[in-house]
Design a protein around this nucleic acid. Structure first.
Lengths: 207, 207
DNA sequence: CCGTTTCTGTAGTGACTGCTATAGCCTGGG
DNA sequence: CCCAGGCTATAGCAGTCACTACAGAAACGG
């Protein structure tokens, strides 16, 4: 293990890297997001990134590590709106409504691939990549658990009908969110996704 | 083009087939359903079907044709409940409710892979299989169009609020259905999917 | 019996997969 | 100025992919 993780502040001995690491990562993100993990080959990646295989492996480790880094930065950029919506809105209802409405826009944004990378980029996978699939699955499970915690607090705070079930609500809104991603991939328009969001918001068990 | 399509009633000249074509197709269905189209290799298929590659190609054409035949029989068996629910229930509300409740059971049935094959078996795909992806996409689009037709009739029949939007409703229930498939793939239980179904059913715009 | 037809297993095809050995290039520190 | 360190490109690794040429086996009609 001689490879240094992304750490651009250390001493700069040796020949400097000839490409922009962040720009290359962004290119990889686009490809993985569009085609998925296994359907994107190293050849496609290096071509899009404008580098040769040894440079990719020196900079990112291997295909799996590159993908996980893509997923990580995705969560801090494109996918950050979900956590923000829940964190910044005082009431769970407002947070979930904002989350779904912003998803309708983000999932159909023409400046990047459609849908959510965490949901769609590692679904059809061979046995040898089942750990990558499991990683994304765990991310999704964490998000749903976050939904449920938020909803449980909301029920206790009287923001819902008193008999509302936080677990059921978390599963419902997760299914709607993941369904919206799927619909976006299939070509659903922003307005169509917005309509889905509004019907799901209207299903909130009001107090 | 000397190959004969599945036609077991024609004259039986030549050496007879040594394996059960339907049983082999069922095995292929399980594999494609579980892993997806491209992640399932001919080697895995022939091993599971108990035959050699030439037998597979003689009986089914090629990988793409085999998959499409799998999809076709899937629609007449495992996936038939969706059409039946809408066709057999006089009221659209009852049809959709039944469809979602049966999906909660079917998507988590332990006797076969989870979720819906049409939704999940060709999502991450290379360029050379984009036609397969498009085929399933078209099937999904057809189902949504069917939802919308059914809902439009329901609105005109006064089975909903008068200002209900059939297009929005079709998109909403399609998203929930596809989301339930995704949740099932991620390990969601029958009861959790049932809870999702009930919240979606409760969102029906009642008259 | 023969000849035709179709299936079967063996053993490959070329093209691609993720990945890397090697050698040369370019930089810093001493 | 030299050398060590890290990046670069070329070229190629073993393995797998979907698919098939070939020859033998098993059924039919005549």
């Amino acid at each position: 293990m001689t490879r240094t993780p992304p750490d651009q502040t250390t001493a700069k001995r040796g020949r400097p890297r000839a490409f922009d690491r962040d720009a290359a990562l962004a290119k990889a993100t686009q490809l993985f997001w569009q085609r998925g993990y296994e359907a994107t080959s190293i050849g496609e990646l290096t071509r899009a990134m404008g580098i040769n295989p040894p440079s990719l492996y020196a900079a990112f480790g291997d295909k799996k590590a590159l993908f996980l880094e893509v997923v990580s930065t995705y969560g801090e950029t494109y996918g950050a709106f979900t956590r923000q919506a829940l964190d910044e809105e005082p009431r769970a209802y407002d947070g979930m409504a904002r989350l779904l409405r912003e998803a309708a826009v983000s999932f159909t944004d023409p400046t990047h691939p459609r849908g959510c990378l965490v949901i769609c980029a590692a679904t059809n996978v061979t046995e040898q990549s089942s750990d990558v699939e499991a990683d994304l699955r765990a991310l999704r499970a964490g998000n749903i658990a976050e939904f449920e915690r938020r909803f449980r607090a909301a029920v206790e705070a009287g923001e819902t009908a008193p008999d509302a079930d936080p677990h059921a609500m978390a599963n419902f809104y997760a299914a709607v969110f993941q369904g919206m991603s799927q619909r976006a991939r299939d070509g659903g328009t922003t307005d169509e996704l917005r309509a889905v969001a509004e019907m799901a918001i209207a299903a909130w068990p009001k107090p």
